[in-house]
């Protein structure tokens, strides 16, 4: 009982799953430069990444490429991706 009460409210993001899911993103986001139409997403803030992906999912943001990618991502998966990318370095 006591242990149950002490359990964290939100389950922590599954970074390992995020790393696997990120391989889908790297096809486009792996070689971004400052002027790229496909922005760099490595090392961005965790909450920014999650918010933006959710905005593509609801189509509040316009690009159909990202809308289609976001459409199938659940909240857990978005959290996993955001946690992974927040600390990930761009592949060399």
């Amino acid at each position: 009982m006591a242990l149950g009460l002490l359990a964290p409210v939100a389950q922590s993001a599954d970074v390992e799953y995020g790393r696997y899911l990120s391989s889908e993103c790297t096809t486009c986001h792996g070689a971004s430069k400052a002027d790229s139409t496909i922005p760099n997403i490595h090392g961005l803030g965790e909450s920014h990444i999650a918010e933006v992906i959710k905005a593509y999912r609801t189509k509040a943001l316009p690009n159909p490429v990202m809308q289609t990618i976001a459409a199938r991502l659940g909240d857990d998966e978005i959290a996993a991706l955001a946690a992974y990318f927040a600390t990930a370095k761009r592949p060399k």
Binding site: T26, T27, C28, H29, G30, A31, T37, I38, P91
Partner: peptide, 14 residues
């Protein structure tokens, strides 16, 4: 078009 050019860079690096 610009997106496709950036995609080519990304996927060939991948």
């Amino acid at each position: 078009y610009k997106e496709s050019v950036d995609w080519y860079k990304g996927i060939t690096a991948d």
